[in-house]
Design a protein around this nucleic acid. Structure first.
Lengths: 234, 234
DNA sequence: GTCTATATACGGATAGAC
DNA sequence: GTCTATCCGTATATAGAC
């Protein structure tokens, strides 16, 4: 699947995402006119991600944000009750989208190897489309409040277990070599993370997401497929 | 090589490290009595890493640091001129150690596969011993000032190129399969990073660094060694 | 060398006009 | 709904006693 095909399948326009956030947080957002909320939320999130990914969420003052989003400080507080709440809103929204897209793309009727590949491609393409969010989410996880931090860790492990489960399924079916599924899943996750955390590196090397996906799939297949290769030492 | 063997080879006691920092920054550190400086620097760095790795360097106030290090705020400023300088000192020191250890461990007379393995093990063991520093360095890189940020990026790419160079050497010698060396090195680096960034995950799964190293080496060998496996698509 | 006390600025958050 | 003006806590950094 190409990136373009993926984009047309998932339909994740900024407006749709902001509309969803609006509906989710109807009680905290004081402004009621949908069109206006969507427009301003878009500006707020874009600015937050841009500034935070440069110097960190904590180092971003609300005056910074106000300037970049084109809203006064007073107006900002019509869209969230505190700076921490803004952080939570962004985190939660991204997690929801990730969960939904993975479920959508890893269809139960696929063979294990097809599932594995679909899951890897889906994650890479999604993180390409929403790169600033993925980077933000990764870097700011430890700045969340206790409860939110639990959610972030749970989400991290959940994603990893999606891949581990596919690996186990493939091993039972005899399609995959008997590697340690948790460890293999962890390494796959690390490769996915590499893409959105070190995005600058691949941009300067002129490697796009489709090339990167090709490389990862090749690597995974070489390791997962049973073949004449040294057996796992554990 | 075991972790214990590595430890005895590299001799990286806290005192030695602090002594080195003292000598490097003799002009900014106002206190002159070596023994005292070493003792207090140790406390300052430990506290900085502990607090920052929990909630971020920027979120750590100097009052926090003062309490945890057991020095008054006034005293802290005898050891660094500003909070930013403290950040730089920590970053620079760790980079120097990493560089030195890799050079020491990747001996020129080794065969390519032995070099590759030595480099991977050295990095994993070092990041195990200095885990708080590696985590800190990774997470706080973007909070550095412009000049220091350049250094951090250069260091990141340098380490990666060490592995890429070994891969190229092995390919020329016919020991390695003709994979893309830059891309393979990037993935190796990602696996090394996984270890110190997600340390909590492996602690809870009761996997130690020697087991992790075994897994990574196995995986790398399966991919790098020329064998009956699908040829790289690019 | 280290401490306490303080200067000074900047942060998040809110009140009230429009 | 949005703005300006302001409250008030907390941040870094320093002065000066001991």
């Amino acid at each position: 699947m190409t990136l373009a095909e993926f984009k047309s399948m998932v339909s994740l326009s900024k407006n749709e995402i902001c509309r969803e956030i609006f509906l989710e947080n109807a009680q905290t957002i004081k402004v009621k006119k949908e069109e206006r909320v969507i427009h301003n939320l878009g500006r707020i999130f874009d600015a937050t991600l841009a500034i935070s990914n440069k110097k960190g969420f904590h180092a971003m003052s609300l005056r910074d944000l106000s300037e970049n989003a084109g809203l006064s400080m007073g107006a900002l507080y019509s869209y969230f009750a505190s700076k921490d709440e803004l952080l939570s809103m962004i985190q939660e929204q991204g997690r929801r989208i990730t969960r939904r897209v993975l479920e959508q793309q890893i269809r139960p009727d696929l063979a294990p190897m097809q599932k594995l590949k679909a899951g890897i491609i889906a994650h890479l393409y999604l993180s390409e489309i929403m790169q600033p969010w993925f980077y933000f989410s990764f870097m700011e996880a430890k700045n969340l409040e206790k409860k939110q931090q639990k959610d972030a860790i749970a989400s991290e492990l959940m994603t990893e277990q999606v891949y581990a489960a596919i690996l186990r399924e493939g091993q039972r079916a005899g399609d995959f070599a008997p590697t340690d599924p948790d460890m293999t899943a962890a390494i796959i996750k690390a490769m996915l993370q590499e893409w959105y955390v070190k995005r600058w590196k691949y941009r300067s090397r002129q490697i796009d997401v489709e090339q990167y996906a090709g490389f990862v799939l090749n690597w995974v297949e070489a390791f997962v497929r049973p073949a004449n290769r040294p057996v796992e030492t554990k």
